[in-house]
């Protein structure tokens, strides 16, 4: 049992380690530009892990929006502000963070025992409604890609409100960045 799980996860473990290394490095590096580029590579490794897990649509979106757009936004902000101020001060951590975060971590790790096995086809998230979507979507929407048919057909109202959220974010950015002509 344990060896079988090791075999199936063996390709994933190096990717997870790369994720951890880039996530830690993006914060510990002093230069902000290097930190942002490390964050971009973190996004890209995340996209690789998701492609490995079978979530190709999510991997595409992460590679384009996460690794591409978010990195560009970060870099534009840095070039607009002060990339020269590279020496960052590191304050002593507050006591509340040192006490509450390990407690939260212990709670999360304690909950690991009750989680279903990853990859189990009979796990609760894969049994109730999701087989219905998989089995009915072609009859209902005539689209072979089930993710597209759920996103654009069954849950199109969600997607519409999401575009409203993005529109609001765009307006907020435009209002914040507009130059006063005084």
């Amino acid at each position: 049992m344990a060896t079988g799980i090791l075999m199936t996860f063996s390709f994933e473990i190096p990717l997870l380690l790369l994720l951890l290394v880039t996530a830690v490095g993006a914060v510990l590096v002093q230069d902000l530009i290097s930190a942002i580029l490390l964050l971009g590579s973190y996004s890209f490794f995340l996209a690789l892990v998701w492609a490995w897990l079978g979530a190709v649509d999510v991997a595409f979106v992460e590679a384009v929006v996460g690794a591409g757009l978010a990195t560009v936004l970060f870099l534009l902000t840095l070039f607009g502000t002060a990339p020269r101020v590279s020496r960052l001060r590191l304050p002593p951590p507050p006591m509340a963070a040192l006490v509450s975060l390990p407690l939260l971590g212990l709670l999360l790790l304690y909950a690991a025992n009750d989680l279903p096995q990853f990859g189990d086809p009979q796990s609760p998230p894969s049994t109730h409604i999701s087989p219905t979507y998989l089995e009915q979507s072609y009859q209902d929407t005539h689209t072979p890609n089930v993710v597209t048919s759920i996103l654009m057909d069954y849950r199109s109202l969600d997607t519409m409100i999401e575009t409203v959220v993005i529109f609001t974010a765009g307006i907020a950015c435009a209002l914040l960045l507009r130059r006063h002509s005084s």
Binding site: V58, L134, V146, V147, I150
Partner: peptide, 9 residues
């Protein structure tokens, strides 16, 4: 596919 849709959003 359901978590994929939610995470895309």
């Amino acid at each position: 596919p359901l978590p994929h849709v939610l995470t895309l959003t």
